[in-house]
Amino acid sequence: MQRPFYHYLMTERDPHKKDAVTLFANAVYLDDSFPKQSEDYHEVSLYLELNGTYLEEMTTFDTAWEIYLDKDN
């Protein structure tokens, strides 16, 4: 069983790094409504499209998702 995307993303948090995935992870941490138990790309993607005002480009999410899949497989 794969861990939720949110759990992976929290491993990318860092107050000092300023790359896109780290900034995304830091912002998601502050988002109380983020689907924290989801392992589904479409569910998380739809949520971000509708609510992810802190995400400048969806390509950042796509990059983070690819890393997530690589690390968990």
Rank of each mutant, 00 (worst) to 15 (best):
H7Q: 13
N51V: 07
T53R: 13
M58G: 01
Y6W: 15
D14G: 14
K18S: 09
F61S: 05
H7T: 05
Q37D: 13
I67R: 14
I67W: 11
A27I: 07
Y47V: 08
K17D: 04
P35Q: 10
E12K: 15
K36L: 09
Y54W: 08
E56W: 07
A64M: 07
E43W: 00
T63C: 11
Y8C: 01
N26M: 13
T22S: 09
D31W: 07
V21T: 07
T53N: 12
I67V: 09
D70H: 11
H7A: 12
F5T: 06
Y29R: 15
S33W: 05
D14T: 10
Y68G: 02
T11N: 09
V44C: 04
W65R: 00
D32S: 08
A25D: 00
W65A: 00
R13L: 02
D19C: 11
Q37W: 03
K18A: 12
E57C: 12
Y6C: 09
N73C: 06
K18N: 10
H42P: 00
E12T: 08
E49H: 14
D14R: 13
E39Q: 15
S45Y: 10
L69N: 03
R13E: 12
R3G: 09
E43D: 11
T22Q: 00
D31M: 07
N73K: 13
M1E: 01
R13N: 04
T53D: 07
R3H: 08
L9E: 03
Y68C: 04
E66G: 11
V28N: 03
E39S: 10
A20S: 10
M1D: 07
Y6P: 08
T22R: 01
Y47A: 08
Q2N: 14
D70V: 04
D70W: 13
E43T: 14
Y68E: 07
Y41M: 10
R13C: 12
D31I: 12
T60S: 00
T11A: 10
Y54D: 01
T59N: 04
L23P: 05
T11Q: 13
N26G: 09
E12S: 13
I67C: 10
L23R: 08
L23H: 03
D32Q: 01
T53H: 15
S33H: 10
P35L: 09
E49A: 08
A64G: 04
F24S: 02
D19V: 09
Y8R: 08
P35F: 02
V21Q: 02
R3F: 01
L69E: 04
T22V: 05
H16G: 01
T22I: 03
T59C: 03
T53Q: 12
W65G: 03
E12Q: 15
R13M: 05
D40S: 06
H16P: 00
Q2T: 15
D70E: 06
D14E: 06
E66V: 14
K36V: 02
N73W: 11
D72K: 15
Y54S: 06
N26H: 09
V44H: 05
K71R: 14
D19E: 12
V44Y: 05
Y47G: 04
Q37V: 06
Y29V: 11
A64Q: 02
V44W: 03
L55G: 03
D40Q: 04
E66K: 13
